[in-house]
Design a binder for these strands. Structure first.
Lengths: 303, 303
DNA sequence: ATAATAGTGTCTTTCAGACAGTATAGT
DNA sequence: ACTATACTGTCTGAAAGACACTATTAT
């Protein structure tokens, strides 16, 4: 910042101002980070020939105390005074999964007044993508009740209303989280209002079963971001092991986008992002396939 | 949230827990919002035939107190305990421009530990786009020193280094803000590190002349977002008056993207977003042009 | 042999980019 | 008549989508 010798209205230099500054004058909110930690795993093979299906998983933590005791929440916690937001997110990630140095992206900061019944809490959400093969199994039997849930988020109702000056687009998403023991669900409504030139998007939780706080909204937002970013970036590779087949890569795209893709077209589109190796899969009940790795010299055309 | 009759380890029900909860146990950061308020205005006509040039403007405020006294900062302020982040951003926008109901989008939340010398401050940045023809002129002669600056942000150095496991892409952007009285500038470095599968992007201020705090970084980020979103959304129309010619619309795209576009192609791409009217411009030194308005029934293919 | 997947070739349609051309008010 | 802009038509090549075809292993 450099030295500033100016004198303000109270006759103070910058140095004097800063030493007398009383930060406790105003009431302040608490700030937390909430982590969306995604991974993709394989279900059991159904028969010796078929490939295992892939599923998208999200890490959730069972709340052991009020509020929302017994419900499931996103991993996260308070931001300490001596750590940046990114550092807080990285710390939470490390605590839950024991992994450093993984893909992490800030999503959105949630600041409604009453989103936490304890006190005013503003929460910065982050999304992280983890390769399930590097995951420490301990993570899921930790002291706290952290568990992976299979996630799905499906649009099940869409309504367009034309108004005098524009239109209203309302969508209902059904969010489902499940594992062997628990089934959680929520309905999140997104409303896009176009009036004249001004467009607004709002998100609202209609129903939340077993998901704490406003976390259903955060999860829906995160899945939306994941779906759009997978189309034009290389983030999907954060979910892949070192070596993978193109079919595995395609399955990851399919499970995230929740659609089927055509093989030939998929391979054309991803061709520049991967490098082939000389290795092949073995002992599949069918033709072996070539293993690929990420091409770290790939650069997005748009950059 | 509903009633929760569970009892926690301290033997408290949810209701008891909440009434005894002491939010002041932990030290908390201050939270602010910072507003990037953009508009596009016209320069003087150079001759009776030529169309006026368009320029991108950003609203800045001269700091009247420490820290960074005398430098220019983004409009913004502390988030009150009884208002949401969006409400705080809307309030600041209204205070500075006297406009409600305008396009506003949350950008990113900045949380470095030492970004404010007074105390720990976490800041949520928002971007707003304003049609300059509706702007209250009073806004710029307000009690506080709010002024519109012409903004430009140009990439002037790019460096790619190949490493063992990937590459590093470093870019230097020259940010320039100017009006009749002041010239501000900054150099912002963005570094994209690709190592194996993991990609990280960092932003750093190399030099900042007259721009307070880390606001140069926020401005660069906002312009980047504006440039990418103008390509696939309708946000540009927030910068337009009710009626406009297609050339004016094109000029807005050109000044934001900092490139020249081909007329025929531009018209093809924007055709579905606009509706023609029966009105025409008058008294131009050349062929009059048809006036268009935004088509509020346009929906993005990707939604 | 067969089931299931691996992998390739190519047709069509769509769209972005480039460029050349015609049209028209105001001085 | 001339200038600057308004507006349109069309060629090209790249990419997205759809589909059909061949290849190869473990059982």
């Amino acid at each position: 910042m450099g030295e500033n010798k100016m004198i303000n209205k109270q006759g103070l230099t910058e140095e004097q101002f800063l030493t007398t500054y009383d930060a406790s004058k105003y009431e302040r909110p608490s700030v937390t980070v909430d982590m969306l930690i995604f991974t993709v795993t394989e279900e059991e093979k159904k028969n010796y020939r078929k490939l295992p299906e892939k599923v998208l998983k999200l890490l959730m933590i069972k709340r052991g105390d009020h509020p929302y005791m017994g419900q499931w929440a996103l991993p996260g916690g308070f931001v300490q005074m001596n750590e940046s937001l990114d550092e807080a997110a990285g710390r939470e990630l490390k605590e839950e999964t024991n992994i450093d140095d993984i893909y992490m992206e800030q999503l959105y900061t949630w600041g409604d007044v009453a989103r936490d019944p304890r006190t005013r809490v503003i929460s910065a959400s982050y999304m992280s993508l983890v390769d399930s093969s590097t995951l420490d199994i301990k993570a899921s039997d930790d002291a706290d009740d952290a568990k992976w849930f299979t996630v799905s988020c499906k649009l099940y109702q869409e309504q367009k209303t034309v108004t005098e000056k524009g239109h209203i687009l309302q969508r209902l998403f059904k969010l489902s989280l499940s594992n062997e023991e628990d089934i959680l669900s929520a309905i999140v409504k997104t409303v896009k209002t176009v009036e004249g030139k001004v467009t607004k998007i709002q998100r609202e939780i209609i129903e939340s079963n077993g998901i704490a706080f406003d976390h259903a909204k955060i999860i829906e937002y995160g899945i939306d971001r994941l779906r759009s970013k997978i189309e034009y970036t290389d983030i999907a590779f954060n979910l892949m092991p070192e070596l993978f087949t193109l079919t595995e890569l395609q399955q990851v795209y399919e499970v995230i986008l929740d659609t089927e893709l055509l093989k030939a077209n998929f391979r054309r589109k991803t061709a520049d992002m991967v490098t082939e190796t000389n290795e092949y899969t073995k002992d599949a009940g069918h033709r072996p396939s070539k293993l690929f790795k990420f091409n770290p010299n790939w650069t997005n055309i748009s950059e």
